[in-house]
Design a protein around this nucleic acid. Sequence first.
RNA 1: AGAGGAGUGGCAGAGUGGUCGAAUGCGGCGGUCUUGAAAACCGUUGUACCGCAAGGUACCGGGGGUUCGAAUCCCUCCUCCUCUGCCA
Length: 424
Amino acid sequence: MLQVNSIKENYQTVLAGLEKRNFPEADTTLTQVLDIDQKRRETQTERDQLQAESNSISKQIGMLMKEGKKDEAEKIKSRTAEIKGLIKDLENRYDEFEQELTQLLYTIPNIPHENVPAGKSAEDNEIVLEEGQIPTLGEDKMPHWDLIKKYDIIDFDLGAKISGAGFPVYKGKGARLQRALINFFLDEATAQGYNEVQPPIVVNEASGYATGQLPDKEGQMYEIAADGLFLIPTAEVPITNLYRDVIVSENDFPIKNVGFTPCFRREAGSWGAHVRGLNRLHQFDKVEIVQITHPDKSYEALEDMSSYVQGLLKKLELPYRVLRLCGGDMGFTSALTYDMEVYSAAQERWLEVSSVSNFETYQSNRLKLRFKGDDKKTTLAHTLNGSALALPRIVASILENNQTENGIRMPKVLVPYLGFDIID
RNA sequence: AGAGGAGUGGCAGAGUGGUCGAAUGCGGCGGUCUUGAAAACCGUUGUACCGCAAGGUACCGGGGGUUCGAAUCCCUCCUCCUCUGCCA
């Protein structure tokens, strides 16, 4: 969430940023934030003064008791009763203001970076570059949902039986392909200096709030109500939360972690032809990269992560394009996001396979993730993350783009991981 | 899951109702000494909020309570350890 101080100090910038996001009634909301904060601070000052008085009386009583002047002590006691009530009231007021403030701040999205294009929807996203040759397939080309049946590598019906729609079962070479991709992605990231972690795939409420999935999107997550836990929608949640309430040393930057996890999304309200096959699932596999950086270095890191992801797509021989998301399409918590899309040649569509974002201090403020520099001052760090990569759509386009009469040719880079070079 | 024990500053570890934000040791930082280093010695060493400042307030696992006053007493939740049970 945004910091009140930054709203105060950069009011016009924040306002313009919210307008770029088409955030309604931005001015009213921001004024309200400052107003509540003002009241909160005034209440604190008042409360602290009374508390100080009360503390000093208590000390006096202590001294008097020690000296055996019980009567005098009793006399002063009566004075404290009044103060006590006042403090209680102020405390309640303070808590209310603070809660109100937090609730309000939760509704305000991150401020877009200046390079974020204005726009309302996906139509307005800016295509940064397009790379790779789009294959031309014959008339008999098949979409991946037919290919997986033909070669019996992924089974939706079976998954539906044991779990429900959107929970596929990977079989034989299909399962092997999953494992190969996961290992390939992890090896590549590790080679780039990312530290591999294996986090839990359920998280508590505090973690959900810290990275911004709560309170906004609880409907998107599967909830284990009996235990107050949520199935993660992305490894971003547990991996970033590793650093909740942590003060790192400036020398530790950049902190780079990579992790593979299954991801779970309820995707309530999504249906239709676009979600057929592997295009949208309730459970899918993803390798996620997360960086924590010095504020001065985060955009450098973002470019670095973007080109890293592009490198993966090149190695997989997939045609792709990079989009810079517009203000209206960007995620709530992001300041700048690149989406990577691969071309799926039988569906004849671009499919999003990665989203790389810089959150600046939006997450770290909730996380209380700070760093200490040589000057000993603590400052909020910047957090970034990106998919590297999400598997299902990668699989979809590998299957579709590489189909031949004799079977589906596998990208060379995967062959050592697969132990075969064709699915037939 | 049941029984018992424990959670204090970066770590270790005192403190069981009153100048305790907290002894002491280790570690860290600064200095003296030294050609340099070590040792020794001296000093310093948590976080957040309010305040122009002086200063103040809060925090001893989380939350609540008792009391003029709580690290210390009570309730509750969480976590860890030991034993028993169960189990990949």
